[in-house]
């Protein structure tokens, strides 16, 4: 397989990012202690001297945070690949069809007005924010998809324009909730909109992990069909692909993936745009390698961004969304300018 070495290199980079993400922070741990703590946590017998503090920090704080970063990065990158394949445009971003803003709207409702519902059954209460964000993302995507559909066909350009309108609409409603919010929820809302991996816990992690595994298992099965779709919808049809079904599956994947990622970690921009781009520069556009490579590279990049976010102003912590957009937006402009020449 000609892509094996590239995937192995990305896998190594990802392992390194995981290791650093577990070791570094306001209280940095020696690298070997970190490794021993992880091994001990998963049940491998190791020497236990002076391990309690490392094990506590790694197990309770850094491991869930690292897993969250891995899943969010991988899912956002894969959603980006799916989105760019769907729109047949390497500059498309999962934010485009309104998934992110729909999720943000759901979160704003939960944060500001959540207390006044008060109606969720007790076991679901901690998930209120996630459920609302996820439902918001899925709902807006469903509306956009519905608007883009005519005579049994999906018009991608109509979806794009509908996405712009829905994003603006969601923005104005979020503005309304921001206006109505009290000081405490205003602060939560602001930080959530900037994106953060802070406060990761295992019980908030598993819905995202479930979606992440589903997307990672499913998308590569459609890699060849995605390649054909890049030729054009008619061409893909002529090659025997059920194009309408493929598009529905891609939209579902994007809505699930971005909805779950935003629900778990807030708005983290540009990962879905930059990562597939960088990967294509490395491997070429064949989805059979772009998909696994993007999952690895997205996870790696997000972990490094998170390490940077927690070290740069330690012990205070920068919201990770600021870091990714600060890197991502100039990169996007660079791509635009380069593409023109």
């Amino acid at each position: 397989m000609r892509f094996t070495s590239q995937l192995i290199a990305l896998g190594m980079a990802c392992l390194l990012a995981i290791w650093l993400s577990l070791a570094l922070g306001p209280v940095s741990l020696p690298m070997m202690d970190t490794l021993r703590a992880v091994l001990h946590l998963v049940g491998v017998p190791v020497a236990e001297d002076n391990l309690q503090q490392a094990e506590l920090i790694v197990g309770q704080i850094r491991l869930p945070r690292t897993l969250l970063g891995l899943a969010v990065g991988a899912v956002l990158a894969l959603s980006g690949v799916a989105m760019q394949g769907l729109f047949r445009n390497p500059l498309a971003d999962p934010g485009l069809v309104g998934v992110s803003s729909g999720a943000a709207l759901g979160a704003a409702v939960a944060i500001v007005a959540g207390a006044s519902f008060g109606g969720l059954p007790e076991p679901f209460q901690p998930y209120l924010l996630s459920i609302c964000a996820f439902a918001g993302g899925l709902g807006v995507t469903a509306i956009v998809y519905r608007l883009g559909r005519r005579d049994g066909r999906t018009s991608v350009s109509t979806m794009l324009l509908a996405g712009v309108a829905m994003t603006a609409l969601a923005g104005s409603v979020i503005g309304l909730f921001t206006y109505l919010a009290d000081d405490a929820s205003l602060r939560t809302l602001t930080f959530w909109n900037l994106g953060t991996l802070n406060g990761a816990s295992y019980d908030r992690l598993w819905p995202l992990l479930l979606v992440c595994v589903a997307v990672i298992l499913w998308l590569p099965r459609r890699a060849k069909a995605l390649n054909a779709l890049l030729l054009g919808e008619s061409e893909a049809h002529h090659l025997g692909i059920d194009v309408q079904r493929l598009k529905r599956e891609l939209i579902l994947c994007i809505a699930l993936g971005v909805g779950a990622a935003v629900a778990a970690a807030g708005l983290i921009g540009f990962i879905g745009l930059i990562v597939p781009h960088l990967v294509r520069l490395l491997t070429g556009p064949d989805h059979r390698v772009v998909l696994p490579a993007s999952a690895l590279a997205g996870a790696t990049l997000l972990l490094f961004a998170d390490i940077f976010a927690r070290l740069v102003m330690a012990p205070a912590e920068l919201p990770i969304g600021i870091v990714t957009v600060f890197i991502g937006a100039p990169f996007f402009l660079f791509l635009l300018v380069r593409g023109r020449s």
Partner: peptide, 25 residues
């Protein structure tokens, strides 16, 4: 097999990869 009037492919596939897509079915 069908050859449309024009195809818009905006991704940097190699020539042989484009031709290989014909073998997809």
């Amino acid at each position: 097999a069908v050859l449309p009037q024009s195809s818009t492919l905006g991704f940097a596939f190699k020539v042989e990869e484009v031709v290989a897509m014909g073998r997809l079915p």
